[in-house]
Simulated assay, not measured.
Amino acid sequence: MSDVELPPAVMMLGLISGFQMSQALFAVAELDVATALLSGPREVEDIATEVGADADALGRIIRFLAQHGVFRTSGSTVEITDLGRTLADGPADSLRSVTRYFHQTHYAPFGNLLDTVRTGEPAAKVFLGKPFFDWVNENPDMAALQNDAMAGFTQNARGDLLEVFDLPQGQTVADIGGADGTLLAELLAGRPERRGVVFDLPSTVSAARPTLRAAGLEERVEVVAGDFFEKVPAADVYVLSAVLQDWNNASSLRILRNVVKAAPAGARLVIVDMVVPEGDAPHPTKMLDIIMLGMLGGRQRSESEWRRLLADGGFTLQRVVTGSGSYSALEATLG
């Protein structure tokens, strides 16, 4: 990639052609090209045969993505880069499931983003004819892909947050909207004195049992199906990880107030989510905020917005801890 500064019109052309980049990356992820290259450089023809692609078309996609650092080429030989490895199955920082998930769920609805800007209505709801999560939960395969994608994404986005953040004291830890139980399993690892609850919709939380079984936590963690807009179970520590970002303030307040109703005196709330920094500097939260706008009607929030939301919901923000990733832990107390 060149360090020469491009004219504004050329830079803008690159920005408005972003759909080509997305679709090229989607194709590579779906065909699993990156995984095929983990063992070392290979010829394009050889890769195409393995993944079931047209060699000429695949070669042109690779050439296009190589200029952005996804591949490294020498003639007809292709090598995967560290950036490209994130589209492979296996690496700890893999985003292949996220890429496939975005392709199957987000890409088409985002064609209606202009309507969202005009009306405030999520593009996905207009495109799909129903709220996005309702649509996902009607399809078990899609719900499974979402669980896999979100578990991998949030784990990578947290970085070392769980190492630098001390979980508040409390016997029972409830992960509200805990999906497949991955986060709760991490939180309870090395804490044999604690018990847990994974709480989510029936179509989602069923995936938690294999996760807990693999972690040896079946005896200490209860899997509970329910709707956090109706009620949540009692606990000493409540965890909301990447949940409130999915909802507008009114819906988020319903969740928070249900926690207040169920929580005993002295309970703590831990929100694992993103905090939008002030200013115009690039930050992942600003991209994800547009995803929330177009898909769910939710939002990413600044620290002051989090503080106001929590106060309106019956909590006082006590501290914000940030690790090496883009997620932070916001700890709050009742009242």
Score class of each variant (00 low, 15 high):
residue 2 S to C: 06
residue 13 L to K: 15
residue 23 Q to V: 14
residue 26 F to M: 10
residue 36 A to D: 09
residue 40 G to Q: 05
residue 49 T to L: 13
residue 65 L to N: 12
residue 66 A to N: 10
residue 67 Q to D: 11
residue 68 H to A: 15
residue 70 V to P: 09
residue 74 S to Q: 14
residue 78 V to G: 11
residue 79 E to W: 02
residue 83 L to S: 14
residue 111 G to Q: 01
residue 112 N to L: 11
residue 118 R to E: 11
residue 123 A to C: 12
residue 126 V to M: 09
residue 133 F to G: 06
residue 137 N to E: 12
residue 139 N to A: 13
residue 142 M to R: 06
residue 150 M to N: 05
residue 151 A to C: 06
residue 162 L to C: 08
residue 164 V to P: 00
residue 165 F to H: 10
residue 166 D to W: 00
residue 167 L to D: 03
residue 171 Q to N: 14
residue 172 T to H: 00
residue 176 I to S: 01
residue 177 G to E: 03
residue 188 L to I: 08
residue 191 R to A: 15
residue 192 P to S: 11
residue 194 R to V: 02
residue 200 D to N: 02
residue 200 D to F: 07
residue 202 P to Y: 07
residue 207 A to M: 10
residue 208 A to S: 13
residue 208 A to C: 05
residue 212 L to I: 01
residue 219 E to R: 07
residue 229 F to Q: 03
residue 259 V to Q: 02
residue 262 A to W: 03
residue 263 A to I: 11
residue 266 G to L: 08
residue 266 G to V: 05
residue 267 A to K: 04
residue 267 A to F: 05
residue 271 I to P: 03
residue 271 I to K: 00
residue 274 M to L: 11
residue 303 E to P: 08
residue 303 E to L: 15
residue 308 R to N: 11
residue 313 G to K: 10
residue 314 G to Q: 06
residue 319 R to K: 14
residue 319 R to T: 12
residue 325 G to K: 10
residue 326 S to L: 09
residue 326 S to W: 06
residue 326 S to V: 12
residue 327 Y to P: 02
residue 328 S to M: 06
residue 329 A to M: 13
residue 330 L to T: 13
